[in-house]
Amino acid sequence: MSDAELHQAGTDQIQSQETIDKERQRLVTERPRRTLGRSPTPAVLVEIERCLRSMADENLGRAFEVLGEEDEQEQVLRLRETLGHERPAIAYTLRQMLESLRFGVLPQSPTLASYVQRRLRTFRSRFDKSLSTEAAVFLSENESLLGSMQSEDAREAEDAEVAKAEEAFAEQLGSGGVYAFTYPHYMRHPTAPSERTDRLPDRTLVKVGCAAKNIRARIDKVANETAAPEPRRILRLYLMPHQPTTEQEVRGIERKFHQLLDAAGHSGARRASLRRQLGGTEWFETSLEFLDTIATTLSLEIVALDTSDAV
Results as ranks from 00 to 15, higher is better:
37 G>W: 07
193 P>R: 15
110 P>S: 00
196 R>I: 12
19 T>D: 09
5 E>Q: 15
142 N>H: 09
1 M>A: 07
127 F>D: 04
277 Q>Y: 10
82 T>Y: 04
305 L>F: 01
49 E>I: 04
57 D>G: 09
256 K>D: 13
246 T>D: 04
276 R>T: 06
153 D>Y: 14
150 Q>G: 12
122 T>I: 14
125 S>A: 12
270 R>E: 10
104 G>Y: 01
1 M>S: 12
127 F>R: 03
119 R>W: 00
184 P>C: 10
278 L>A: 04
29 T>Q: 08
75 Q>H: 06
244 P>E: 02
246 T>L: 01
182 T>Y: 12
165 A>C: 14
215 I>R: 10
224 N>Q: 15
3 D>N: 13
278 L>R: 10
50 R>P: 05
163 A>Q: 13
191 T>D: 15
232 R>Q: 14
162 V>N: 12
154 A>E: 10
166 E>W: 11
35 T>R: 14
99 E>G: 11
71 D>S: 11
196 R>P: 14
103 F>R: 00
136 A>G: 14
309 D>Q: 14
215 I>G: 04
185 H>N: 15
10 G>C: 05
219 I>F: 03
254 E>P: 00
96 Q>M: 11
302 I>H: 03
276 R>L: 00
48 I>E: 05
28 V>Y: 05
155 R>W: 09
125 S>R: 12
62 R>W: 08
282 E>L: 01
242 H>F: 13
260 L>Y: 09
256 K>P: 02
129 K>E: 14
243 Q>C: 10
233 R>E: 06
180 A>T: 05
18 E>F: 08
200 L>T: 09
156 E>I: 15
76 V>H: 11
232 R>Y: 15
37 G>D: 08
48 I>H: 04
4 A>M: 11
153 D>C: 09
204 T>P: 03
309 D>P: 07
93 T>N: 04
232 R>L: 13
292 D>M: 10
19 T>Q: 13
120 L>W: 01
169 F>W: 03
78 R>F: 03
280 G>V: 00
157 A>S: 15
53 R>Q: 05
238 Y>F: 10
26 R>F: 15
217 A>N: 08
210 C>T: 13
255 R>D: 12
69 E>A: 05
212 A>I: 06
57 D>T: 10
311 V>P: 08
12 D>L: 14
292 D>R: 05
271 R>G: 01
134 E>Q: 12
5 E>D: 15
28 V>D: 04
153 D>N: 15
272 A>I: 00
72 E>D: 10
190 P>M: 04
74 E>I: 03
149 M>Y: 14
141 E>G: 09
139 L>C: 08
27 L>E: 02
124 R>N: 06
238 Y>H: 08
254 E>M: 01
246 T>G: 03
41 T>D: 03
100 S>N: 02
185 H>E: 14
